[in-house]
Amino acid sequence: MSSLTYAQAAAQGIWNSQVDEIGYIPSVTVAPVIDHLVELDGGNNGRSSHVNPLSREEEAVGVIGALPLAGKFGAVVMQDNGFGNNITALTTFSISYHLPMLIFANTRGSLGEYNSMIHSVSQPAPDLLRRLGLPVIELDRRSSAQDWEDTVSEAGNHAKMTYRPVIVLGSFWNTDGKVA
């Protein structure tokens, strides 16, 4: 049984999927994931050799999504409302050019949410992504941290096997993490 927190388990799962580079767009919910990714890479204060901040989700698809063209593989850590920013890049670049990538995104707009409008983009995000042909795997309080680690890791393998981005959505409500 994993002794990791859910955030640490997600971070460990990302590294387990043998990524070369990780880009992130911060949110308060994924901050502990980012901290653990950075820590495991020997860095601090949000930066390490292979973990870097990016300014926008669309840009992350370009920077990290291009790595397979060089025989490498990468992951993006973000929040689900950012899919509104990167859908064109995901479809016309990653999907069209058959480029694998792992995306781990925390969810917003559901149980535990304080923000009165973020559900308007976050709630339809899984259906929208699936409609575009992107595989979406959803995790929440009902499975263990160990399951989160294993699922995130296998999602990376699935992306490589199927030559496309694979998205893992993690709801931190009623886990040891926080929603917002």
Binding site: D20, E21, V61, G62, V63, G65, A66, L67, L69, G71
Partner: peptide, 10 residues
């Protein structure tokens, strides 16, 4: 520019 940045890192 984003794609080129990723490839330059790689």
């Amino acid at each position: 520019g984003s794609i080129a940045t990723g490839l330059a890192i790689a």
